[in-house]
Protein backbone atom coordinates (compact mmCIF):
# COMPACT_ATOMS: atom_id res chain seq x y z
CA UNK A 1 0.00 0.00 0.00
CA UNK A 2 2.62 2.50 1.09
CA UNK A 3 4.80 1.76 -1.88
CA UNK A 4 2.01 2.50 -4.33
CA UNK A 5 1.24 5.69 -2.42
CA UNK A 6 4.85 6.72 -2.66
CA UNK A 7 4.64 6.53 -6.42
CA UNK A 8 1.90 9.16 -6.30
CA UNK A 9 4.10 11.48 -4.33
CA UNK A 10 7.55 11.28 -5.81
CA UNK A 11 10.18 13.16 -3.90
CA UNK A 12 9.29 11.63 -0.55
CA UNK A 13 12.71 10.71 0.68
CA UNK A 14 13.54 7.64 2.72
CA UNK A 15 11.04 4.97 3.67
CA UNK A 16 7.64 5.83 2.23
CA UNK A 17 5.28 6.97 4.95
CA UNK A 18 7.95 7.26 7.63
CA UNK A 19 6.87 10.82 8.38
CA UNK A 20 3.46 9.46 9.30
CA UNK A 21 4.82 9.49 12.85
CA UNK A 22 4.26 13.26 12.81
CA UNK A 23 0.57 12.80 12.13
CA UNK A 24 0.47 10.25 14.92
CA UNK A 25 1.88 12.92 17.24
CA UNK A 26 -0.90 15.24 16.18
CA UNK A 27 -3.56 12.68 17.07
CA UNK A 28 -1.94 12.05 20.45
CA UNK A 29 -2.01 15.80 21.14
CA UNK A 30 -5.65 16.05 20.20
CA UNK A 31 -6.59 13.16 22.46
CA UNK A 32 -4.53 14.54 25.33
CA UNK A 33 -7.34 17.01 25.79
CA UNK A 34 -10.25 14.75 24.93
CA UNK A 35 -8.94 11.61 26.68
CA UNK A 36 -12.34 11.25 28.35
CA UNK A 37 -13.87 10.34 25.00
CA UNK A 38 -11.11 7.76 24.51
CA UNK A 39 -11.46 6.19 27.97
CA UNK A 40 -15.25 6.20 28.10
CA UNK A 41 -15.39 4.52 24.70
CA UNK A 42 -14.59 1.31 26.52
CA UNK A 43 -17.80 1.42 28.55
CA UNK A 44 -20.11 0.70 25.66
CA UNK A 45 -18.84 -2.85 25.05
CA UNK A 46 -18.73 -3.30 28.83
CA UNK A 47 -22.41 -2.40 29.20
CA UNK A 48 -23.30 -4.71 26.32
CA UNK A 49 -21.34 -7.52 27.92
CA UNK A 50 -23.15 -7.09 31.24
CA UNK A 51 -26.57 -6.62 29.68
CA UNK A 52 -26.44 -9.32 27.02
CA UNK A 53 -23.98 -11.71 28.66
CA UNK A 54 -25.52 -11.79 32.12
CA UNK A 55 -28.98 -10.22 31.79
CA UNK A 56 -29.92 -12.14 28.66
CA UNK A 57 -27.78 -15.03 29.84
CA UNK A 58 -30.22 -15.69 32.68
CA UNK A 59 -32.98 -16.21 30.09
CA UNK A 60 -30.92 -18.11 27.54
CA UNK A 61 -28.92 -20.41 29.77
CA UNK A 62 -26.14 -22.23 27.91
CA UNK A 63 -25.35 -22.14 24.20
CA UNK A 64 -23.21 -24.85 22.61
CA UNK A 65 -22.35 -26.00 26.12
CA UNK A 66 -20.96 -22.60 27.06
CA UNK A 67 -22.35 -20.14 29.60
CA UNK A 68 -24.01 -17.39 27.52
CA UNK A 69 -21.59 -14.67 28.70
CA UNK A 70 -18.63 -16.81 27.56
CA UNK A 71 -20.33 -17.30 24.19
CA UNK A 72 -21.18 -13.66 23.60
CA UNK A 73 -18.05 -11.90 24.98
CA UNK A 74 -15.70 -12.55 22.01
CA UNK A 75 -18.48 -11.55 19.60
CA UNK A 76 -18.88 -8.20 21.37
CA UNK A 77 -15.12 -7.72 21.28
CA UNK A 78 -15.07 -8.34 17.53
CA UNK A 79 -18.02 -5.99 16.97
CA UNK A 80 -16.35 -3.24 19.00
CA UNK A 81 -13.17 -3.61 16.94
CA UNK A 82 -15.15 -3.35 13.72
CA UNK A 83 -17.24 -0.39 14.83
CA UNK A 84 -14.28 1.56 16.23
CA UNK A 85 -12.28 1.14 13.02
CA UNK A 86 -15.27 1.95 10.85
CA UNK A 87 -16.06 5.11 12.80
CA UNK A 88 -12.50 6.36 12.42
CA UNK A 89 -12.20 5.44 8.78
CA UNK A 90 -15.60 6.82 7.70
CA UNK A 91 -16.98 9.74 9.74
CA UNK A 92 -13.66 10.95 11.11
CA UNK A 93 -11.83 10.60 7.82
CA UNK A 94 -14.62 12.32 5.90
CA UNK A 95 -14.60 15.21 8.35
CA UNK A 96 -10.84 15.67 8.06
CA UNK A 97 -10.88 15.23 4.28
CA UNK A 98 -13.75 17.54 3.35
CA UNK A 99 -14.40 19.90 6.24
CA UNK A 100 -11.39 20.45 8.46
CA UNK A 101 -9.01 20.28 5.47
CA UNK A 102 -6.57 18.76 7.92
CA UNK A 103 -4.69 17.02 5.14
CA UNK A 104 -4.49 20.06 2.86
CA UNK A 105 -2.41 21.74 5.53
CA UNK A 106 -0.36 18.59 6.07
CA UNK A 107 0.44 18.19 2.37
CA UNK A 108 1.89 21.71 2.19
CA UNK A 109 4.75 20.37 4.32
CA UNK A 110 7.28 17.68 3.42
CA UNK A 111 4.64 15.08 4.34
CA UNK A 112 2.88 13.26 1.47
CA UNK A 113 -0.24 11.09 1.12
CA UNK A 114 1.75 8.01 2.13
CA UNK A 115 2.58 9.70 5.43
CA UNK A 116 -1.08 10.62 5.93
CA UNK A 117 -2.11 7.01 5.35
CA UNK A 118 0.57 5.46 7.54
CA UNK A 119 -0.04 7.97 10.33
CA UNK A 120 -3.77 7.37 10.45
CA UNK A 121 -3.45 3.60 10.21
CA UNK A 122 -0.88 3.56 13.01
CA UNK A 123 -3.12 5.65 15.20
CA UNK A 124 -6.12 3.39 14.54
CA UNK A 125 -4.04 0.33 15.44
CA UNK A 126 -2.85 1.92 18.69
CA UNK A 127 -6.37 2.88 19.67
CA UNK A 128 -7.67 -0.52 18.72
CA UNK A 129 -5.07 -2.33 20.80
CA UNK A 130 -5.85 -0.20 23.87
CA UNK A 131 -9.48 -1.30 23.70
CA UNK A 132 -8.58 -4.90 22.93
CA UNK A 133 -6.20 -5.16 25.88
CA UNK A 134 -8.81 -3.64 28.20
CA UNK A 135 -11.44 -6.08 26.97
CA UNK A 136 -9.19 -9.10 27.46
CA UNK A 137 -8.38 -7.97 31.00
CA UNK A 138 -12.12 -7.71 31.62
CA UNK A 139 -12.75 -11.22 30.26
CA UNK A 140 -10.01 -12.62 32.49
CA UNK A 141 -11.42 -10.84 35.55
CA UNK A 142 -14.93 -12.13 34.89
CA UNK A 143 -13.70 -15.63 34.13
CA UNK A 144 -14.99 -15.49 30.55
CA UNK A 145 -11.71 -16.61 28.99
CA UNK A 146 -11.38 -20.38 28.90
CA UNK A 147 -7.88 -20.58 27.46
CA UNK A 148 -4.56 -18.71 27.47
CA UNK A 149 -5.14 -18.42 23.73
CA UNK A 150 -7.37 -15.48 24.69
CA UNK A 151 -4.25 -13.32 24.47
CA UNK A 152 -4.25 -13.91 20.71
CA UNK A 153 -7.62 -12.15 20.51
CA UNK A 154 -5.65 -8.89 20.79
CA UNK A 155 -3.90 -9.27 17.41
CA UNK A 156 -7.11 -10.92 16.21
CA UNK A 157 -9.18 -7.83 16.91
CA UNK A 158 -6.51 -5.63 15.32
CA UNK A 159 -6.91 -7.73 12.20
CA UNK A 160 -10.68 -7.14 12.28
CA UNK A 161 -10.00 -3.43 12.69
CA UNK A 162 -7.58 -3.50 9.77
CA UNK A 163 -10.15 -5.14 7.50
CA UNK A 164 -12.90 -2.74 8.56
CA UNK A 165 -10.62 0.30 8.17
CA UNK A 166 -9.57 -0.87 4.71
CA UNK A 167 -13.15 -1.18 3.52
CA UNK A 168 -14.22 1.97 5.40
CA UNK A 169 -11.53 4.28 3.99
CA UNK A 170 -12.05 2.96 0.49
CA UNK A 171 -15.79 3.61 0.76
CA UNK A 172 -15.22 7.06 2.23
CA UNK A 173 -13.22 8.19 -0.78
CA UNK A 174 -16.46 7.92 -2.77
CA UNK A 175 -18.68 9.63 -0.20
CA UNK A 176 -20.04 13.03 -1.20
CA UNK A 177 -22.49 13.97 1.56
CA UNK A 178 -23.09 13.08 5.20
CA UNK A 179 -26.32 11.35 4.17
CA UNK A 180 -24.23 8.81 2.26
CA UNK A 181 -23.12 7.49 5.63
CA UNK A 182 -26.58 6.16 6.42
CA UNK A 183 -25.55 3.37 4.08
CA UNK A 184 -22.81 2.45 6.55
CA UNK A 185 -25.48 1.62 9.15
CA UNK A 186 -27.41 -0.38 6.57
CA UNK A 187 -24.38 -2.69 6.29
CA UNK A 188 -23.10 -2.71 9.87
CA UNK A 189 -26.41 -3.28 11.67
CA UNK A 190 -27.19 -6.61 9.98
CA UNK A 191 -23.55 -7.64 10.36
CA UNK A 192 -23.77 -6.87 14.08
CA UNK A 193 -27.06 -8.73 14.55
CA UNK A 194 -26.71 -11.74 12.24
CA UNK A 195 -23.00 -12.74 12.35
CA UNK A 196 -23.47 -15.44 15.01
CA UNK A 197 -23.02 -12.64 17.50
CA UNK A 198 -25.89 -13.56 19.82
CA UNK A 199 -26.72 -17.10 18.74
CA UNK A 200 -24.81 -19.81 16.84
CA UNK A 201 -24.73 -19.97 13.07
CA UNK A 202 -26.28 -23.45 13.26
CA UNK A 203 -29.61 -21.77 14.01
CA UNK A 204 -29.83 -20.66 10.36
CA UNK A 205 -31.23 -22.92 7.65
CA UNK A 206 -29.19 -23.40 4.49
CA UNK A 207 -28.41 -21.47 2.33
CA UNK A 208 -28.64 -18.53 4.77
CA UNK A 209 -26.07 -20.19 6.95
CA UNK A 210 -23.51 -20.26 4.14
CA UNK A 211 -24.20 -16.62 3.32
CA UNK A 212 -23.62 -15.64 6.96
CA UNK A 213 -20.39 -17.64 7.00
CA UNK A 214 -19.12 -15.58 4.07
CA UNK A 215 -19.53 -12.21 5.81
CA UNK A 216 -16.48 -10.48 7.30
CA UNK A 217 -17.76 -9.95 10.85
CA UNK A 218 -18.75 -13.61 11.08
CA UNK A 219 -15.15 -14.56 10.26
CA UNK A 220 -13.89 -12.16 12.91
CA UNK A 221 -16.28 -13.46 15.55
CA UNK A 222 -15.46 -17.05 14.65
CA UNK A 223 -11.76 -16.30 15.07
CA UNK A 224 -12.02 -14.54 18.44
CA UNK A 225 -14.52 -17.09 19.81
CA UNK A 226 -12.26 -19.98 18.85
CA UNK A 227 -9.35 -18.30 20.65
CA UNK A 228 -11.12 -17.15 23.82
CA UNK A 229 -12.88 -20.49 24.35
CA UNK A 230 -9.73 -22.44 23.46
CA UNK A 231 -11.38 -24.39 20.64
CA UNK A 232 -9.32 -23.47 17.58
CA UNK A 233 -10.45 -25.30 14.45
CA UNK A 234 -8.74 -25.25 11.05
CA UNK A 235 -11.22 -22.65 9.75
CA UNK A 236 -9.42 -19.93 11.71
CA UNK A 237 -6.78 -19.95 8.98
CA UNK A 238 -9.57 -18.98 6.60
CA UNK A 239 -10.63 -16.22 9.03
CA UNK A 240 -7.14 -14.71 9.10
CA UNK A 241 -6.62 -14.89 5.34
CA UNK A 242 -10.09 -13.49 4.61
CA UNK A 243 -9.66 -10.47 6.91
CA UNK A 244 -6.13 -9.79 5.74
CA UNK A 245 -7.10 -9.83 2.07
CA UNK A 246 -10.11 -7.60 2.72
CA UNK A 247 -7.94 -5.04 4.49
CA UNK A 248 -5.24 -5.10 1.81
CA UNK A 249 -7.71 -4.74 -1.05
CA UNK A 250 -9.37 -1.81 0.74
CA UNK A 251 -6.03 -0.14 1.38
CA UNK A 252 -4.84 -0.49 -2.20
CA UNK A 253 -8.08 1.04 -3.48
CA UNK A 254 -7.69 3.82 -0.92
CA UNK A 255 -4.12 4.59 -1.88
CA UNK A 256 -5.13 5.12 -5.50
CA UNK A 257 -8.21 7.17 -4.63
CA UNK A 258 -6.68 9.27 -1.84
CA UNK A 259 -3.87 10.54 -4.04
CA UNK A 260 -6.42 11.59 -6.65
CA UNK A 261 -8.55 13.35 -4.06
CA UNK A 262 -5.73 15.21 -2.35
CA UNK A 263 -3.36 16.01 -5.20
CA UNK A 264 -5.63 17.41 -7.85
Amino acid sequence: MLASLARLMPGTTGLPGRRGIRLLERNVWVYRRSWIALVTGFFEPLFYLLGMGYGMGALVGEIEGLPYAVFVAPALMATAAMNGALYDSTFNLFYKLRYARTYDAVLATPLGPADVASGEVAWALIRGSLYAVAFVVLMLLLGLALSPLVLLTIPGSLLIGFAAAGVGTAATTWMRRWQDFDLVAVFTLPLFLFSATFFPVTAYPEPIRTIVELTPLYRGIHLLRALSTGQPDPAIVLDVVYLLVLGLVGMSITSRRLGKLLLR
Binding site: P10, G11, T12, A105, P110
Partner: peptide
Protein backbone atom coordinates in the same frame (compact mmCIF):
# COMPACT_ATOMS: atom_id res chain seq x y z
CA UNK B 1 10.70 14.66 -8.42
CA UNK B 2 11.60 16.77 -5.39
CA UNK B 3 8.15 17.72 -4.07
CA UNK B 4 8.90 16.97 -0.43
CA UNK B 5 12.28 18.77 -0.53
CA UNK B 6 10.73 21.85 -2.11
CA UNK B 7 7.82 21.91 0.34
CA UNK B 8 10.32 21.78 3.18
CA UNK B 9 11.53 25.22 2.07
CA UNK B 10 8.18 26.83 1.24
CA UNK B 11 5.64 28.60 3.41
CA UNK B 12 2.04 28.23 2.26
CA UNK B 13 -1.00 30.33 3.18
CA UNK B 14 -3.94 28.68 1.39
Amino acid sequence: RDGARIRALLGVVP
